[in-house]
Design a protein around this nucleic acid. Structure first.
Lengths: 267, 267
DNA sequence: CCACGCTTAATGTGATCACAAAAATTCACC
DNA sequence: GGTGAATTTTTGTGATCACATTAAGCGTGG
């Protein structure tokens, strides 16, 4: 391994790697994927599922090497993410994953509360059986993640669940805005997951699914708002509680309890 | 009528040179401004004030030359704008200013209706006398633009008016999302301005200012919603007058009624 | 006059080099 | 041993070159 420390959260060198999609016969199906798009998508996914901790410094060349792409595609990817507020560029012109503050947390939550019910309501009459089945499947994944304490699976499944609904609303504008919010929210949420962990509240997802089945607008809206607010309350408490209890899910176990703390990023 | 740009000065993009204006002198005060930031800001401003027409193709090298910057900064700028949905990248990998469709129009308006009142409410108790004075000044500029029929001034002043309020709410998250929406909205709005021109519009801005003075939350909310809806109605009418009859809902997707004429966009 | 094939120009993507600023490291010195 | 200056490394920014793809000219042949 090069002297460069892997920028990945757990030091797991390959976990973020640009996976050559399994079954990538490629020549026939997807010749269009540009390098920068692949870099963008992997980094984006890493953010949404919280694979990268807040405060983490993002080095252009280092990240390019970690992902196995050139520098130019990585520049484009970082540029795009920065434009979406998923990465912050400091005065030093250095880039890092944004720290979470109480103000930003509130702002992100407000954005979620404003946009997500609206998206869901739009989607209500567009969800067919197949889509509903996918939604249920995502929810099953969430429950599975709870059983196994698999934080990463939870993050991915939770994202998939929500956006399976929102995308059905066919508002690319709103979903794009929401994805920006989730990218900002992901790193912090993943961090906190270990603390609130397996504490499953009353399952608002089930209520949402039921509301979708009955085409119950207000109930769906309430379910989503409650889901968001539940998380808010949980995560909000975690913020104020400077707990020392480390997450159990972190394999190395050696995680500081600082919620938005830097692992090895710069100040 | 569609493909012809009559009164608008959008003929070609040569007019949006990277001037030292943009409110910033030169490197006297801000040695930190990177080239790509300057390119980004000018292009962004051009989008918000609608200096560029929908459908207009954006050529990397050509635009770089027009703005007097290198290719690399322009790449970064275009990349950022694309990430904010202010520019669309086609399958050809060519970039252009997005066309407006009825669906997108509705989505953008919904986003405005969701986010802008919320921002304004946040701002309500943060607006001091100085800020209110600036808001009034912007409104004066708007009225002036009406008198002179200065579309560009109107666009700039209208943007300044709204965001002077929203920024006071100190939610970088929400304002950033809103700016993305306005960048998507600007080119089309500017286009339509020539059609609806100086038309009526009972001044909702005055009402909003009055509501700010009295710290009247609901009145401010209503004023902004009415302002947005007024524009919606006006622009909506223009849409239906201008474009081929929009199908009820083109569910099969791709081909929806193109609302905005192209000057020299690609196929 | 129009259609079709060829040539040419232009475009986006990516790599590589160059450079200044900022970290990180080294190392002398108290 | 700890501290600060000098050096090395790393960083982001930007320019330039190379290449494949595609739009645009442009001719010839029908």
């Amino acid at each position: 391994m090069i002297g460069r420390t892997s920028t990945l959260a757990d030091g797991n060198a390959a976990s973020l790697a640009l996976t050559a999609r399994a079954g990538e016969g490629e020549e026939g199906g997807e010749p269009e994927a540009t390098m920068q798009d692949r870099a963008y998508r992997t980094l984006r996914h890493a953010l949404i599922v919280g694979k990268l901790p807040p405060g983490k410094g993002i080095s252009l060349r280092a990240m390019a090497e970690d992902l196995g792409v050139g520098v130019m595609p990585m520049r484009a990817a970082i540029s795009r993410l920065s434009a979406e507020n998923a990465l912050t560029v400091h005065d030093n012109r250095r880039v890092s994953i944004p720290e979470m503050t109480t103000e930003r947390f509130d702002q992100l939550m407000q954005a979620r509360l404003l946009l997500e019910p609206a998206c869901a309501i739009r989607a209500l009459n567009e969800i067919d059986a197949a889509t509903l089945a996918r939604i249920r499947a995502h929810d099953d994944q969430i429950n599975l993640s709870y059983q196994n304490g698999d934080a990463e699976l939870y993050m991915a499944a939770n994202y998939a669940f929500h956006f399976e609904i929102y995308r059905a609303g066919r508002s690319e504008v709103l979903t794009h805005l929401l994805e920006s919010v989730w990218m900002q929210f992901g790193p912090f949420m993943r961090r906190v997951y270990g603390l609130v962990g397996t504490a499953r509240l009353t399952d608002k997802h089930e209520i949402a699914i039921g509301a979708i089945e009955r085409r119950d607008v207000t109930r769906l809206k309430l379910a989503l708002e409650a889901d968001i607010l539940d998380g808010m309350e949980l995560l909000g408490k975690s913020i104020f509680a400077d707990a020392t209890a480390p997450s159990t899910t972190a394999r190395s176990g050696r995680k500081s309890a600082r919620l938005s703390g830097t692992s090895d990023g710069e100040a």
